[in-house]
């Protein structure tokens, strides 16, 4: 463990400056520059909030506002965006940086940390924008926000664990990345983000509960929509899943890291 993480500490400046560089180069040469960092999530939030609130006006039980449905989707999607961004980018992190890995000697695990860092920044921006829009809709769920860091941590663990496990294999078998990208789309619809878990027939419920993102997503919805603490029992399975997948990812990474540069 020490051999893996100590070099990463020495590379903390590189990790930070890579995250900065990523945002800088994304918005370089554009007039609005950093403003785009806010405009992108704002557009996303507005689409869900305004359009869906007009089309789908169905009220949800226990929620007073008429914007219940858009708020429901937004609370679920903010966690999902973090999950899918980090998972998707972890799948190709070693391939995308192949040139660097072949030419420079540095701790390879710095690369996924850069992805996690920039994913967190994106999450934060989306989260804040969403809250501002919530304010305009008259919905201010402030009471249980201290649960958010834990929910984010579990999401990160799941995304990085699953993403890196398949990301390492993807270096050797490139079809895995393609398969996972398709799987990710199905996964979205297997998670109660757009629909509510209660509409799923009882006999298929186990399928929903097998999905580690279900508990986390419901946690986000509890905090952001119902202003309640998440159901802790629903978070046990995702946490265990995250720890196991992260450990598996580390095992396979260690086995593969010697041969990785050979095939890149």
């Amino acid at each position: 463990m020490k051999r893996v993480f100590l070099p990463l500490w020495a590379y903390r400046y590189f990790i930070l400056s890579s995250i900065k560089t990523e945002f800088r180069s994304r918005f370089a040469r554009s007039k609005l520059g950093g403003l785009w960092m806010v405009l992108h999530p704002l557009a996303l939030v507005l689409i869900y909030a305004l359009i869906l609130s007009q089309i789908m006006t169905a009220k949800l039980p226990e929620v007073a506002t008429q914007y219940a449905y858009p708020v429901y989707i937004l609370s679920g999607i903010v966690g999902w965006m973090l999950f899918s961004e980090i998972l998707g980018r972890s799948l190709t992190v070693f391939i995308d940086n192949g040139n660097l890995l072949k030419k420079m000697s540095f701790p390879k695990l710095a690369l996924p940390l850069i992805i996690i860092g920039s994913g967190l920044v994106n999450f934060l921006l989306l989260f804040i924008t969403m809250f501002v829009v919530f304010g305009f809709l008259g919905h201010l769920p402030f009471h249980m926000l201290h649960w958010i860091p834990l929910l984010v941590l579990i999401t990160l663990g799941l995304a990085a664990g699953i993403g890196l496990f398949f990301g390492v294999l993807n270096v050797f078998m490139r079809d895995i990345g393609q398969v996972m990208n398709i799987a990710l789309q199905f996964w979205f619809w297997l998670t109660p983000i757009v629909y509510m878990a209660s509409i799923v027939p009882e006999k298929h419920h186990w399928l929903l509960m097998l999905n580690p993102m279900t508990g986390v997503t419901m946690g986000f919805q509890h905090v952001l929509l119902y202003d309640k603490a998440p159901d802790a029992s629903l978070l046990v399975y995702p946490s265990v899943f995250a720890i196991v997948s992260l450990s598996l990812a580390m095992v396979i990474f260690k086995k593969a890291s010697e041969e990785m540069a050979d095939v890149l």
Binding site: Y11, Y13, S17, T21, R24
Partner: peptide
């Protein structure tokens, strides 16, 4: 900026 960035890649603070 590139100096700082690529020196970071070499492990400098």
């Amino acid at each position: 900026q590139n100096v700082y960035h690529s020196a970071g890649l070499m492990g400098f603070t």
